[in-house]
Design a protein around this nucleic acid. Sequence first.
DNA 1: TTAGCTATATATAAGCT
DNA 2: TAGCTTATATATAGCTA
Lengths: 233, 233
Amino acid sequence: MMMVRKKRQSMGRQKIAMKRIENEEARQVCFSKRRTGLFKKATELSILCGAEIGIVVFSPAGKPFSFGHPSLDYITKRFLDGDGNDNGVKVVGSWCGMFVEGQKLLQLNQEHAGLTEKLEEARKRRAELEAEVAAQQVGSGLPCDVEVHEMGAEELESFHKRLEELRRGVANRREELEILCMDKKVAREGVPPQLGYGGGYNGLYLTPAPIGWFYGHTQDMNMSFQFGDRWYS
Amino acid sequence: MMMVRKKRQSMGRQKIAMKRIENEEARQVCFSKRRTGLFKKATELSILCGAEIGIVVFSPAGKPFSFGHPSLDYITKRFLDGDGNDNGVKVVGSWCGMFVEGQKLLQLNQEHAGLTEKLEEARKRRAELEAEVAAQQVGSGLPCDVEVHEMGAEELESFHKRLEELRRGVANRREELEILCMDKKVAREGVPPQLGYGGGYNGLYLTPAPIGWFYGHTQDMNMSFQFGDRWYS
DNA sequence: TTAGCTATATATAAGCT
DNA sequence: TAGCTTATATATAGCTA
């Protein structure tokens, strides 16, 4: 009687060459499993050692997945801006891409501040000028600096005409005033408008994020969320 | 004769509870090993599946380590700005921290553009006003809109005085001109200065980064660099 | 995609240098 | 810290459902 040898149920884990898996389906399956493994390892690392970790992965198909503890937000902030809660760590410089990005951000931020300042300056100056123009149109000190001695004949004549008109106007007004015998005074304002440009915007400094392990399948927003041993979604 | 049983050389890998390792030294050792393991897994994932991965890890002591393929820079850019090389992936929204960061960046960027525009506007307006003031101080149309009929007695008197002075000036100038019997003309400019504000700055769009696997020990910049099977530093 | 199922390849805890 | 070593815990390739 022959023992029927059971066929092996599985050939077990096979060794694979460390190179791109050409079969598309196999590649996709491998990606799913290994991405899960990677995130699990990251979770363990953060639990066992209290490490803070952020991961972003793009699948071969181009889908973004992310992991973060305490949150990707926190990691990004700490890495880019040199650690919000100051553990004595300061990233001083590097050609690691992310940090370059951080510098760009700082630069953008600074430029933003600079522009805001310049804009306010320009507005003030504009207000001053408007006030000046207004004052000149209305006021006492008006034709003071006209450089008559540089005028040509034609200009001089038209200017003279204007003066005569004004003189007539003055005379008329004087009569009016005398007739009415009153001392009405008109108050005028030369004060530039208040612009109230105060609060500084800062796009980089985020409110603290909740602490936990985030596993994000970023594209379609179905993300599960692990806190301690439990999973939420 | 007794066989001398060799003492076990090692008790082998022990199962450990998935909770924070309290012994500081053990925790640090575990971190080193597992960080290495994590980065290796990430490398394999990117090789086998062509995935693009970025990782940032802060050690329990606070030291930052990073991994990136093709580079952290690239990953950051692709994740934040929604994929530069457009694989049809667009990250539309999420409460995943990193992406919030991305939105902040976009916002900051837009605000930057807006401010630049406003600044230019303010500058133009200022230039116009300056021109106007200049024109009024020098020119023909000067005292035209003075509202003499609204002046009070005092203002009227001082204005009248100014008019007289000007009239004297005009008379003098007329004499000068007659005497010199010449028709000198003075050209004047009222054109606002050219401001030339053109090129747009954009802090977010980076030049493409080299492709490879970067393992970064960010703090002291000793980073090794793997390309294919080989390591460089 | 995701979920089992082996059987095996790998990762790693402990201890030592 | 960083390497070894060994024995064991885990991860995962290849399959099936």
